[in-house]
Design a protein around this nucleic acid. Structure first.
Lengths: 138, 138
DNA sequence: GCCCGCCTTGGACCGGGTCCAAGGCGGGCA
DNA sequence: TGCCCGCCTTGGACCCGGTCCAAGGCGGGC
């Protein structure tokens, strides 16, 4: 559980109360929180923590590859702690709920050479959109 | 060429100089312009046109299904006049260039039932990211 | 236990986008 | 052809997520 903290320490992170709290919020339950939601949860434990620090820390976690940034809409970015198994996202068009999903096969394989226009492709993002069971029932 | 204008008239659009100019800018060359770029090109022909009108008109074209909104980054939305043939996007991670691409097969087919969590999926967006030949050469 | 320099802070700022009330003008009808 | 209704346009204020900055705080190696 504090594997994450250990990895971070191992990478030379100066361990501050603020960083620990942010890392723990993300590691705690695997949701797709916005920066503001992370800030709110962190502030519940460490009331003085500032918005800027949360943004800084999230940015560092992203560039260390410990957390993924997800932009499924044009509202706030969301942070996905599930960075170690490749996956895509399924989003409810109505309530915005997000689920990690694992499509079969490699989505890159679907793009013929003639459609690559000489690009060196490194990454594919797939977003499935639809209505979740809860919204369908309502 | 003014097929677009005819369709819009047919749908009860009140045809104003502003709307005509915005529609023509988009219809003119098939790029992926931002709202501000559309505004700049429209203003070259109709200097008094306001930003608000460009946003309104783009929004209407999108909801009429004549233009697609593309959000490949967290900067400005882009508007894709190629709304009548389904396609995905290939984006240069360095310069931001965007190309329409047509993957083989239906990307939806790759998502097993067990990974759909009861959602009714209506739409899939795929973004391929990489380096374009120009940036690779530089 | 000290001290260097990385981290945190809060508040200003930014950019894309939306909203609004007031006035303009398209186009159906006579 | 001309009038008039009501849809469209305008510019400027506002919103929201995010970034930047200078000053002070504190982690942790020695």
């Amino acid at each position: 559980m504090s594997d994450l903290l250990n990895r971070l320490r191992g990478r030379g992170w100066r361990m501050t109360a603020q960083r620990r709290v942010v890392a723990e919020v993300l590691d705690g339950d695997h949701m797709h929180l916005t920066a503001d939601e992370v800030h709110a949860r962190a502030a519940a434990r460490l009331p003085e923590i500032s918005r800027a620090t949360v943004y800084n820390t999230l940015g560092e976690l992203v560039s260390l590859g410990e957390v993924l940034e997800v932009s499924t809409d044009r509202r706030a970015k969301r942070y996905d702690p599930n960075a170690h198994r490749p996956h895509q996202h399924l989003v409810c068009a109505q309530c915005g709920a997000i689920r990690d999903v694992h499509p079969a096969g490699n989505p890159l394989a679907d793009l013929p050479d003639a459609e690559r226009f000489g690009f060196t492709i490194s990454n594919v993002e797939v977003t499935y959109r639809g209505i979740c069971p809860d919204c369908a029932a309502a």
